[in-house]
């Protein structure tokens, strides 16, 4: 772990790295500009005005909350609403849960864990969007 590799070499922040960052920013700005140009031709648009008396058939949350909404269909409600809070608390306190020095096995475990969680969220989102 302590052997010197190419990774340990450094480059100066100014001007070498900041130039790279500037180019990344320029690329991002180009994308933003493209979005603006496309948005002029295909605007975001609006649905019908809000009407509290008229519930649409499929009420959906914003896309990154769809997995929570979908999860509530399969989990009992009072557990389902607490799960995200517990999840956030677990994520928040993760550095205090996983205190060992980093190892290849630990990293593999983390990769698998995040893959499983993200896949679960993706599947739930897909199921929710399909409805």
């Amino acid at each position: 772990m302590t052997e010197t590799t190419d990774k340990d070499k450094t480059i100066p922040f100014f001007p070498t790295h900041i130039t790279t960052e500037a180019w990344v920013t320029v690329g991002l700005m180009a994308i933003v500009l493209a979005v603006g140009v496309l948005g002029s031709f295909w605007p975001i648009g609006l649905e019908e005005p809000a009407d509290p008396m008229n519930t649409p058939l499929h009420v959906k949350a914003h896309w990154y909350f769809v997995f929570l909404q979908e999860m509530l269909k399969y989990v009992p409600k009072n557990i389902g609403v607490v799960l995200p809070i517990l999840g956030i608390i677990a994520v928040l306190l993760w550095p205090f849960i996983d205190r060992r020095t980093d190892s290849k096995r630990g990293r593999l475990f983390r990769i698998l864990l995040s893959a499983v969680v993200m896949a679960g969220i993706a599947v739930l989102t897909w199921m929710g969007m399909r409805a």
Binding site: L46, E47, E48, P49, A50, D51, P52, N54, T55, P56, V59, K60, A61, H62, Y64, F65, L68, Q69, L72, K77, N78, V81, V82, I85
Partner: peptide
């Protein structure tokens, strides 16, 4: 930010998405 910004256009999608989201918050024991 996403949750609060989504209601601002005040169209049907925004209104009912926010209703659902706040309902989930309202179901916390």
């Amino acid at each position: 930010f996403g949750l609060t910004g989504y209601l601002l256009p005040w169209d049907q999608t925004a209104f009912w998405a926010s209703t659902v989201a706040t309902e989930i918050a309202g179901a916390e024991p």
